[in-house]
Nucleic acid binder design. Structure first.
Lengths: 344, 344
DNA sequence: AACCGGAACGGAAGCGTTTCCATTTCCAAA
DNA sequence: TTTGGAAATGGAAACGCTTCCGTTCCGGTT
């Protein structure tokens, strides 16, 4: 362990390798203009002394940071965690570092963009699952930092997402195809996020209409995101005089909560009531919950790829948008409509 | 928007404020040696021009980075996600940035410490949930980066954790106090982590012994972490000729999997079989699962606090260790032992 | 043999801060 | 008033790298 001595600089490496600092820099950065032999020598010396370029100095001199900001609402939720993990993975493989910003609430987020901690700290920022206001975006652009969105809605900057409307249709159409005519919806909103028209909600209404089923306002309840809220929402649905034979939940977590209520009430799933969610959360498998699978990891990977592109060609690839497909996963929480027990 | 001009440097701010760069620097860094009036003036100018210090230049000159490395195995799991979110939150509040490294496997991890990407990139690293080899630790120390652990085992560096043995006892003792004598254990291991004696396992054996219950090797099954594996493990337990009346799972996820198997088998929880987990995963509430609550967020907060301490007093606070308490949360998955149905 | 273009290479000039050191300023004590 | 020292300042010297630019060194041309 001879490397306890003062930290080596690129100049030391250059000297040890018998080259100039310029050459050493080029060699270490895998830049052109160095003969293969020289490069080998420099790399060997560097390796031997466990030397690595100081990112700070490098960043200062080169004007790039080699860092990407990752802004995400609730890192403790499966969806975001998975997304982040995947993005980090491909970015790191590309030699970039990821600066994490867990910005939960609306205010936090505003403040984040306000202070622009990202300023001079990152080359680009990836925003997961929520829209960036136009003013914010322009500011970032002005500062020269690229911006990419993952798992959110359509936007004017490069982004990757799923089609919420299609996903919703896959869920609701499944229920309809099983013969259900009385379908409840548990609409989930995030109180911390700006309200926006949800494709998942539109899908419900449109699907019913297409099937010629008359809308019944009583059958749609709105609640906050999160399992426990789903449980409470389900209770409201069950208290209806004409309770639905099937329920469409905006997410698996909400569905899980609803399932608890159903089970506690003594009703059986799916015999007495069918339920379908969206996401294909790992928990769905354990719950035997029918759901619509959305490729979270793939979205993350695609978003990271977008960042890499942006950094490579400095030219913004014209508002690129990637929409990934979803698909229904049938498990044991849905079945055809039960024969009406009550003699009408 | 007049700030589209070339980026301002501290020299510009100094000039605009009518002071020297040294003074400007001190003012901006909230360092002593500047009169209140002068500081105000500098800050005002900086604010007015949306100026912020370049972290790269600052880091280069000052020798610190203002960044903390956060090394975590599986960011997509609730436990780690929560931990990370919490750590990030307090660190960011302290003006530090968090560099995220999602290092899943054993190899990835070794490679990570091997390449020491952290070198010169961070002032400290927080390692979540897995032990750092002594050699690795020494190397980091040599490089001058502090190290803190969260949610893992006891270690020689500052760390915060829970007492796995106690948590395990709380779970198993609960079962025993309900009258169970035939208690199965689903032991969960992470194939990607180094094996180590688990307090949760020791607790099981010791609790049975203390209660005078003869150990039965058939009743403990080992499986990989993750719900689906728990399901499979439970199947093994149920296939026993003398199946247990209660099951102790090392984690809620595993317990969730086990519950699915039990339910699919047609058995009722808790009438036919009781089950208890550990963690108090949000899912446990939706599953009505009795479990041992562990304060994840608090662990994260404490770990972040340790980092802050370390950075403040440059002197390592003598292998500080913080152990947080756990407690049993009784829900609907456990009940007293059913009267033996078979005439013996 | 003189010449030429290009690849390699060396080195100095920044990049935007912090910090040490030398000065100047300011005030209260003498 | 004079004066000693604390407080406030200004400025130059790093910090460790990238990059531009001028040289040197080749092999192939004419």
């Amino acid at each position: 362990m001879a490397d306890s001595q003062r930290n080596l600089t690129i100049a030391d490496i250059a000297r040890l390798a018998g080259v100039g600092v310029g050459t050493a820099s080029r060699a270490l950065n895998n830049a052109p203009g160095v003969s293969a032999a020289t490069r080998q020598r420099v790399l060997a010396v560097a390796d031997q002394h466990a030397y690595v370029i100081s990112p700070d100095a490098s960043g200062l001199a080169a004007g790039r940071t080699g860092r990407i900001g990752l802004v995400v609402p609730h890192i403790d939720r499966w969806f975001f965690g998975t997304m982040v993990g995947e993005i980090e993975s491909v970015l790191r493989a590309a030699g970039l570092d990821v600066l994490l910003y867990d910005v939960g609430g609306l205010d936090d987020r505003r403040e984040f963009f306000e202070q622009l901690p990202a300023r001079k700290k990152v080359d680009a920022v990836v925003v997961v699952a929520f829209p960036v206001e136009e003013a914010e975006r322009q500011r970032l652009t002005l500062l020269g930092v690229h911006i990419v969105a993952a798992g959110g809605q359509h936007a004017v900057y490069p982004h990757v997402c799923i089609d919420d409307y299609v996903a919703g249709r896959q869920a609701v159409d499944h229920l309809i195809s099983l013969g259900h005519r009385s379908i409840g919806m548990i609409e989930a909103v995030d109180p911390e996020q700006p309200v926006r028209p949800s494709g998942r909600t539109a899908a419900y209404h449109r699907a019913l209409a297409d099937a010629g089923i008359a809308p019944d306002p009583d059958l749609v309840v709105t609640t906050n995101w999160g399992g426990i809220n789903g449980a409470e929402a389900m209770a409201r649905l069950l208290s209806l005089s004409h309770r639905p034979t099937a329920v469409y939940a905006h997410s698996d977590e909400v569905a899980a909560g609803a399932m608890r209520t159903i089970r506690r009430t003594g009703l059986r799933i799916p015999e007495d009531i069918s339920i379908v969610g969206i996401d294909d959360h790992p928990m769905a498998e354990l719950l035997d919950l029918t759901t619509v699978h959305q490729p979270v990891a793939e979205q993350g990977r695609a978003a990271a790829g977008l960042v890499l592109d942006l950094l490579r060609n400095d030219t913004p690839p014209a508002d690129q948008a990637i929409t990934l497909p979803t698909h229904l996963v049938v498990r044991r929480s849905t079945t055809s409509v039960p024969p009406t027990p009550d003699p009408s």
